Simulated assay, not measured.
Amino acid sequence: MNLKQKQTEANLKPGNRTVPGRTIPVPHRDISERAQEMIAAPYNVFIDWNLNPPTKEDWRKMVTMVSESSAPAVNKLIKELGLTVEQLQIGGVKCYRLTPDSIPENHRKQLVIVAHGGAYVYAPGIGSVREAAMFAAFGNYTTISVDYSLSYEKPFPGAIEDMIDVWRAILTAYDPRSIAMTGTSAGGGLIMATILKIKELGLAMPAAIAPSSPWADLTETGDSYKTNEWLDNILVSYSGYLGRAAKLYANGNDLSHPLLSPINGDLEGFPPTILTSGTRDLFLSNTVRSHRKLRRARVPAQLQIYEGISHSQLSFDPDLPETREAYREIAAYFDQYLIS
C-alpha cells in the first residue's frame, strides 16, 4: 500500500487527524541566515525541556543555578546595548529600570512595563531583564522589568499581585495613557491576566499592550500544542517541564481559571493589543486564539507571525534581524496609542 492509500485509509472517518512521520526542512526564503541557524539548532541546550524537579526546593535550586550561569551573558547584553540599569523597589516589588543612552522626544514621558517569561518559574534577578533590555534598546523607551514572585516561592496569584502592586505605584507618577505593557510567554499571559485584574479592580488601563507568544491557556488546548510539538526547539512539548510548571504555578487551582488562562476571561475593554509569534511556536495557537478573541471583543488588535520561529526566539538574540524588526513593529504600534 502506498503513502496516499495509507493516509487516506487512516483518515476515512471524521475526527483526529493521523499524519505520517516527517522530516521538516529549515525554511530559507524571506528569512535571515541567522534565523535559519537558530531554527536548525538542536533542542534548547540551556534548559532541559523534560526537567522534573520533585519539590519546590529542587525547583529553586535548579532555577538558581540556571540564573547564576546566565547572569554574565545578561550583563554583557546590557552593556553592548548601551543601557543603564538600576535596581529599585516599586510598590514593594523588586524591579529593574533600563534606560537607553538616547530617548526620542516623544518617548521621554512614556514608560513600558515588562513581565519576563520563563513559565512562572525561571529568570529571577538580573535574568529577568533580557526582554526589557531589548525593548529599551530597539524601541527607545525607558522600561521597567518586574522581578515578580516565582512559583516555587509564591504561586498563583502571587505574580498577579506583584504586577498590581507595581501598577498602583506607577500610577502615582505616570499618566496611564503614556504607559504600555509587554511580555513574552508566561510574561505575555501575565500581562493579559493583569489587565483582567486591573479591569476587575476598576483601575486605569495602560494605553496599549504587547503580549508576545502569550501563555494565554495553561491547559494543553489549541492546535499548535500538537502540530508544533517536537518542531518547536525551545519548549518542545507540553508533556515536559512546561505542563509541570503550569501545575506548580496554579498551586491546585483549576488551570482554566481566567487569571491563570486569560484566554478564558472577558477581554472586552482591553487596551489596543499587538501580538507576536512564529510558525513553529508551540504557543502559536495561544497567540492566534487571543487575537481572534480580542477582535471579537472589538479591541483594536494586530497579529504578526514570523516564518520558522519557535517559542520566544525573537527575545533571545539582539543581532537577529527579525528580533529588531519585531520590537520596532511593537514600538511603532505603541506610538499610535501612547500620549507623549
Results as ranks from 00 to 15, higher is better:
S224F: 08
S224M: 08
S224A: 13
K226I: 15
K226N: 13
T227P: 00
L231S: 04
D232Q: 04
I234Y: 11
I234K: 07
L235N: 09
S237N: 12
G240Q: 09
Y241S: 01
Y241H: 09
L242M: 12
K247G: 00
L248Y: 03
L248A: 11
Y249N: 07
N253H: 14
N253A: 08
D254V: 09
L255F: 06
S261P: 08
P262S: 01
N264D: 02
N264P: 06
L267N: 05
E268L: 07
E268M: 10
F270L: 09
F270I: 11
F270R: 12
P271K: 13
T273K: 10
L275G: 00
S277Q: 01
S277P: 01
G278Q: 02
R280L: 13
D281P: 06
D281M: 06
F283Y: 13
S285R: 11
S285L: 00
S285V: 03
T287V: 03
V288A: 05
V288C: 02
V288D: 00
S290G: 00
S290M: 10
S290Y: 00
H291G: 00
H291N: 07
H291V: 07
K293M: 06
K293P: 05
K293A: 09
L294Q: 04
R295Y: 01
P300W: 06
A301H: 04
Q302G: 01
L303R: 11
L303T: 05
L303Y: 04
I305M: 06
E307K: 15
G308D: 03
H311K: 02
